[in-house]
């Protein structure tokens, strides 16, 4: 389904043979009024791999993540330059709608943010708004996605109840299921486990690994051990610039930059 629902430009570009899979960032810059948040970011996020974006607080990790589903569009004073391509199509090109883009690029936030709606509606509202499922198919989708994230048994008896009675971890799983209900090609995870207990964190990490078989995953994390556990690649940022982009193995064992070495060993952070 996800291939058929591609961005408007995707097929045209594939015909020209220039399409590259995954997320490609070219000379990306983000400014908030006069302040430079990101500058000269160029990197590739490999398809169906987990890339951890790491770096000290305020280095622009979340800003980079939010450039990839154009969340900066809403914020007044934010200016984005350069380009971001998904499967070869520039998402900032004129005529590309954020609605279709965000259908393909899901996001999970630092803290769970379920809708103030029933648990079932949390899953089914977005797919129905996008016309992906009918009202009848929605029930099946709800079960499927909740099962996938391991929440079905816990909530099957109270699908019409408020999600705010669930634990924080369950709420975050619900938000993951909500994002998956749109069958995204890319998932942006913004410190998704920073507010969760170790058991749920481990559960979510396992899900991330499973999902990476079919979804390109970008995860911002402060937790280097987590990055080491689940990521295939690492992108290390400092002060709005890329310091190093490498495979996890290289980054954690033999980083190419002195600053990476210092960061991995905990001397800066």
């Amino acid at each position: 389904m996800s291939e058929a629902m591609g961005l408007a430009g995707t097929r045209a570009e594939s015909a020209e043979g220039t399409a590259t899979e995954g997320v490609s960032v070219r000379n990306l810059g983000v400014r908030y009024r006069d302040r430079v948040l990101l500058e000269g970011i160029s990197t590739e996020f490999r398809p169906r791999r987990v890339t951890a974006i790491v770096g000290p607080t305020g280095c622009g990790k979340t800003t980079l993540l939010r450039s990839i589903n154009r969340m900066h569009d809403q914020a007044p004073g934010m200016r984005v330059t350069g380009s971001v391509s998904i499967d070869g199509a520039d998402i900032y090109a004129p005529g590309v709608g954020v609605r279709g883009l965000r259908r393909r690029v899901g996001m999970l936030f630092q803290r769970p943010n379920p809708f103030p709606q029933s648990i079932a509606d949390n899953i089914s509202l977005a797919p129905r708004a996008h016309g992906l499922v009918s009202r009848r198919e929605a029930a099946h989708l709800v079960e499927e996605r909740l099962t996938e994230v391991g929440l079905w048994e816990a909530v099957r008896g109270r699908l019409n109840a408020s999600p705010f009675h669930l634990s924080g971890g369950q709420q975050q799983l619900l938000c993951l299921a909500r994002a998956l209900a749109l069958s995204p090609d890319v998932l942006l995870l913004d410190e998704p486990t920073s507010s969760l207990d170790p058991a749920t964190t481990e559960h979510i990490e396992r899900l991330i690994t499973q999902l990476s078989e079919r979804v390109t995953i970008l995860i911002v994390t402060h937790n280097l051990a987590q990055a080491a556990r689940i990521s295939d690649d690492v992108l290390f940022l400092m002060a709005g610039r890329v310091v190093e982009a490498a495979s996890s193995r290289t980054f954690f064992n033999d980083p190419g930059d002195e600053r990476s070495r210092a960061y991995v060993s905990g001397r800066i952070g």
Binding site: M71, R102, R103, G106, F109, A126, A129, C175, R178
Partner: peptide, 22 residues
């Protein structure tokens, strides 16, 4: 909270849908 509204916007919902749902 912005976080609550962004949950809907990040799913490609319109402002109108976000108002209704969140």
């Amino acid at each position: 909270p912005t976080l609550a509204r962004e949950g809907a916007l990040a799913l490609g919902m319109t402002r109108h849908e976000t108002a209704k749902v969140v």
